[in-house]
């Protein structure tokens, strides 16, 4: 532990800006993954253990689309749309058959999907890592704000993720579909009894969840290496965010993702070598004080 370094960092604007930005980018990408995870749990009470696969496939689809079109915007769109469609397929063909089954059966189905698609990715894109490369538009020097370093690419990613969060939040609170989804999260039987086609609704929820994970994988493509099995580590952090935020809460996922991001950003200064451990300690601390998570309903 290096409290001195942490203290110096907190009193230095350059350090605060740099570490906060790095925390925001880690947090925002995590939010996109966790939002889908928590949305699916909120409505269907299903823990989608295959969610990391959506993130991985989104990255790979974007990689191929970028290679084919040389357009990062199209690549990101392709990654998100492909995973939204894959989400519908996944829900209709597999998950809909295990609704109401015990959690072990759901876990087994998801785990099978993870292994199958890891191998498919290996066959299609090869077992070695792939790197998309930075789009020409973002090959620019970083901005210096109060002496801190803010990469323009990351600023754009943070902006996109914040916009998605806003659209998701407004969509859930203001639109008819959003209200139906929220109602289904509270009482799906009543929603069904009122004539809402829950089959379509559940598929839409998976499409949104899958699309968000695919979007995160695609957005991160230019800076993160792509490799089979890469969805696993992001899934673990996605679960941590979901649990801290409160299972089923989008707002909770946002706050928890930012907490995790900032803990990573500043933890690396004050707790070098113990950043991962610190995240779990924060999680334990929050769950001791609020077992239902920051924004979860009381257990």
């Amino acid at each position: 532990m290096d409290f001195n370094a942490l203290g110096v960092c907190f009193t230095t604007p350059a350090c605060v800006v740099t570490q906060a930005t790095s925390g925001l980018i880690v947090g925002m990408l995590l939010f996109l993954v966790a939002a889908g995870l928590t949305l699916i749990f909120g409505v269907l009470k299903i823990v989608n253990f295959a969610h990391g696969t959506f993130y991985m496939l989104g990255g790979y689809v974007a990689y191929s689309a970028y290679a084919a079109t040389d357009s990062y915007a199209l690549a990101v769109l392709a990654g998100a749309v492909a995973m939204a469609l894959f989400g519908v397929l996944f829900e209709r063909v597999l998950m809909s058959r295990v609704y109401g089954s015990n959690v072990l059966m759901q876990l087994l189905v998801c785990y099978a999907v993870v292994l199958i698609f890891d191998d498919i990715v290996k066959s299609v894109w090869g077992p070695e890592f792939r790197a998309m490369g930075m789009p020409a538009a973002f090959q620019v020097p970083p901005l210096f704000i109060a002496g801190g370093v803010v990469p323009p690419f990351y600023a754009v990613l943070i902006g996109i993720a914040a916009l998605i969060a806003m659209v998701l939040s407004l969509g859930l609170s203001r639109t008819r579909l959003g209200k139906t989804v929220r109602a289904a999260a509270v009482n799906p039987q009543m929603v069904s009894a009122l004539g809402v086609n829950t089959t379509v609704l559940f598929a839409i929820v998976f499409a949104i969840g899958g699309g968000l994970a695919g979007l995160a994988g695609a957005l991160a493509g230019p800076v993160r290496s792509l490799s089979p099995g890469m969805g696993f580590s992001i899934l673990i952090e996605g679960f941590i965010v979901t649990v801290i935020g409160g299972m089923g809460s989008i707002a909770g996922a946002m706050v928890a993702a930012l907490v995790i991001g900032l803990v990573r950003g500043f933890g690396t200064i004050g707790f070098p070598g113990f950043t991962d451990g610190l995240i779990y300690i924060v999680m334990i601390g929050i769950l001791v004080l609020r077992p239902q998570g920051l924004f979860g309903r009381p257990l």
Binding site: C15, T18, Q19, T21, S22, I25, F129, A220, S225
Partner: peptide, 29 residues
Amino acid sequence: PDFTEVITKLIQAKPQALFTLLYAGDLSA
């Protein structure tokens, strides 16, 4: 997958040089 916090930590320390043993996909990322 993400080296952001590592990179910003290195920038904060203001070394003149960095020695790294990262390799393959990790080095590329």
